[in-house]
C-alpha cells in the first residue's frame, strides 16, 4: 500500500467529498474532505486501507477566510503512510460529525477541540469540557479573536 494507491482509492470511492489531494512524500499524503462525509471516509480508511488508528485531531483557525479547519492525522501500524484529512467548517457555527464510532480515541481530542475552539461534534458520546474549567466554555480561547488574555495586570512583575 503506497501513497499513490491510497490517494487513488479514496478519490475514486468518494469523488464528491475528497478534493485537493496532495502527495508530499512516500509517507505523507493529505486531502480535503467535505464535512458531511467524514465518518464514511474514516470507515472506508479503517476497513479497506488499513488505517487502523487516529494519531491526532486538531483544529486550525483561519480568521482571514472566516473558516475553521478540522485536521485529522490518520496513520497505520501496517504501512508507513500518514494521511492528513482536513475538513473546512464555517467559523460562526462549526458543526461536524464525531468520528468516535470509528476511532475511539477521538473522544478526548474532540472534547478538547470543543472547549478550545467551540467545534460542536454531532453524535459525540460525552461532549463537555476536558481541561478548562466549565465556566470558560463559550470563550473559545484558542481562536484568533479571543481577547480574554490578562493584559499587564500582574503587579509583581519580576
Amino acid at each position: 500500500m503506497d501513497a499513490k494507491k491510497i490517494i487513488d482509492s479514496i478519490s475514486t470511492e468518494f469523488p464528491d467529498s475528497i478534493s485537493n489531494t496532495l502527495i508530499d512524500s512516500d509517507i505523507r499524503i493529505s486531502a480535503y474532505v467535505s464535512a458531511s462525509d467524514v465518518v464514511n471516509v474514516c470507515k472506508y480508511l479503517k476497513d479497506n486501507l488499513q488505517f487502523d488508528h487516529l494519531s491526532c485531531e486538531s483544529v486550525v483557525d483561519y480568521i482571514d477566510r472566516d473558516e475553521l479547519e478540522n485536521v485529522y492525522h490518520i496513520a497505520s501500524y501496517i504501512h508507513p503512510v500518514v494521511l492528513t484529512l482536513k475538513a473546512i467548517l464555517p467559523r460562526d457555527n462549526p458543526e461536524i460529525e464525531s468520528i468516535v464510532e470509528v476511532y475511539w480515541n477521538a473522544n478526548w481530542y474532540e472534547r478538547e477541540n470543543y472547549e478550545l475552539f467551540g467545534v460542536k461534534y454531532i453524535n459525540h458520546p460525552d461532549l463537555r469540557h476536558l481541561v478548562l474549567p466549565e465556566e470558560m466554555l463559550g470563550e473559545w480561547p484558542l481562536r484568533k479573536d479571543y481577547e480574554g488574555f490578562p493584559q499587564n495586570t500582574a503587579k509583581n512583575l519580576v
Binding site: 478548562l132 470563550e139 488574555f149 490578562p150 493584559q151 495586570t153 500582574a154 509583581n156 512583575l157 519580576v158
Partner: peptide, 30 residues
C-alpha cells in the same frame, strides 16, 4: 516566578494573576 506574576504563562488565558489578593503571602522567592 509563576506563582508571583505568572512567569512564562503570564499572558495565558487560564492563569490566575495577583495571587497575593487571594492569599496572605509572607515571602516571595523569585
Amino acid at each position: 516566578d509563576c506563582s508571583i506574576s505568572g512567569g512564562p504563562f503570564y499572558q495565558s488565558y487560564s492563569t490566575v494573576q495577583n495571587i497575593e489578593e487571594i492569599f496572605p503571602i509572607d515571602v516571595y522567592i523569585p
